[in-house]
């Protein structure tokens, strides 16, 4: 590294390439690590059922409106669950609102 590079770096004119490398690597791995072909419909159904079982312990869900899907945006894949809540199990109707559970691809991986 020349003196000029050092000054540039100290003045923040240019970011060190290791930072760029780290960011690019994290993005590309986030994509690589989710093997979409391994998430079959069967697996997604199973996951959906288990998530609903857990949530149903605490609140009553509108099963007709439930939607669980995988969405990919900006090279990140997310599991998006849309579970409309009818009422809490204490019996009191509080609200009907879309409750979103979002998991990053890291959580999906095994």
């Amino acid at each position: 590294m020349t003196l000029r590079d050092l000054i540039n770096k100290l003045l923040g004119r240019e970011t060190a390439s290791a930072n760029t490398a780290r960011e690019r690597l994290q993005l590309v791995l986030a994509h690589d690590r989710v093997d979409m072909s391994s998430l079959t419909t069967d697996l997604l159904d199973k996951m959906r059922k288990e998530i609903l079982d857990v949530v149903a312990k605490y609140v009553e869900i509108d099963f007709e409106e439930v939607a669980v899907s995988l969405e990919t945006e900006d090279r990140m894949t997310a599991l998006v669950a849309n579970l409309p809540i009818k009422r809490t199990l204490s019996g009191e109707i509080k609200f009907k609102k879309n409750d979103q559970i979002s998991k990053t691809d890291k959580d999906i991986k095994k």
């Binding site: 590294m1 060190a16 390439s17 290791a18 930072n19 490398a21 780290r22 690597l25 994290q26 791995l29």
Partner: peptide, 16 residues
């Protein structure tokens, strides 16, 4: 190169 942050550090690689 690691010292001048022009190469991924050991911690970066191991962490990833």
């Amino acid at each position: 190169m690691m010292a001048s942050q022009e190469m991924l550090s050991i911690e970066d690689v191991q962490g990833i």
